[in-house]
């Protein structure tokens, strides 16, 4: 029963490393994805920093002597119409965009995936009902739906998250349904049924983990578009209400001073762009890493 040395080497080389590790090893070679991941990590660090070291009072500290200051070493991003430091405000605003990118898309993804996989697995009338509702949701233009929801529930972070979450549901339902359909006839599902696993458990312990790749890709792609959509809604006044420094709202506030203080428009926009950019890069990288066939 002695293993030869070469056999051990081969088995080591071909040993399955686990899904996540394999994906990570492939992702690591993609410079764009690593950059995106690093920027996102940086944003999360900034958020943690502002949670620990900044109070709402710091963010809205009014200083009538230093209004409309251009960027300087004391105020890296300059100051606004009330003398508030824009740098502090932009950093503080990171939490809103992250809440949208992870929270809102997360809500939509969980709800959408749940119904999508049920529709795909059970088929029949369950499928019909879920998909027809999805069709209706899909026929409502996202930005209009967002505006209507915010109008009813009143402006605020939670409302904005619900609004954005709602607009991404239909995409996840379709995606989950399609990938469940593609794996539900495979042998391992049959064997799970043969050993007497309950239908519900089969869906969530066998089918879904094996159709997760497209969902991850959709998730990161949606993160980028949702950050932009949320910023757009806030810009129009349908987002996080004004005194809070959400990036879109900051741009909207800076809009009245385009000629006198263009930095008020410039900097929050750069942050929105960086956030969306890193999500998009990460999404692209994950798509390639999760589906190596596409690479060539």
């Amino acid at each position: 029963m002695r293993k030869s040395k070469s056999a051990t080497l081969i088995s080591k080389q071909y040993r399955r490393k686990g899904f996540l590790i394999e994906v990570w090893l492939r992702l690591r070679t993609n410079r764009g994805a690593v950059f995106g991941l690093a920027v996102l990590a940086l944003f999360i660090l900034i958020m943690v920093y502002t949670f620990i070291f900044m109070t709402p009072a710091d963010v809205s500290k009014i200083d009538s002597k230093s209004r409309y200051l251009p960027p300087s070493s004391a105020h890296p991003f300059g100051t606004d119409d009330m003398g508030r430091d824009l740098f502090v405000r932009v950093l503080y605003g990171t939490r809103y965009s992250l809440a949208i990118a992870f929270g809102a898309v997360g809500i939509g993804a969980v709800i959408g995936t749940f119904f999508g996989s049920i529709a795909g697995y059970y088929g029949g009338w369950t499928d019909q009902i879920i998909m027809r509702i999805t069709d209706v949701l899909h026929s409502l233009p996202g930005i209009l739906l967002g505006m209507v929801i915010v109008t009813i529930l009143g402006a605020g972070l939670q409302t904005l998250m619900i609004a954005i979450g709602f607009t991404v549901i239909s995409g996840f339902v379709r995606m989950a349904r399609a990938s469940v359909l593609s794996v539900k006839t495979s042998e391992f599902v049959e064997s799970a049924r043969a050993i007497g696993m309950s239908e519900f458990r089969i869906v969530f312990s066998q089918v879904l983990p094996n159709s997760i790749s497209p969902l991850i890709v959709t998730f990161t792609a949606r993160m980028a578009t949702s950050v932009l959509a949320a910023a757009g809604l806030s810009f129009l006044g349908f987002g996080v209400p004004v005194p809070l420094p959400e990036w879109g709202a900051l741009i909207s506030a800076g809009r009245n001073y385009l000629t006198t203080a263009p930095h008020l428009t410039l900097f929050p926009g750069i942050f929105i762009m960086l956030m969306a950019f890193s999500c998009a890069l990460l999404g692209d990288g994950l798509r390639d890493a999760l589906d190596p066939k596409l690479n060539k």
Binding site: A224, A231, G269, A276, A280, L281, D284
Partner: peptide, 14 residues
């Protein structure tokens, strides 16, 4: 990628 991640309203303001 730049086009995808740039908010249209921000570009408009710039």
């Amino acid at each position: 990628m730049l086009g995808l991640s740039m908010p249209a309203f921000w570009l408009g303001l710039l």
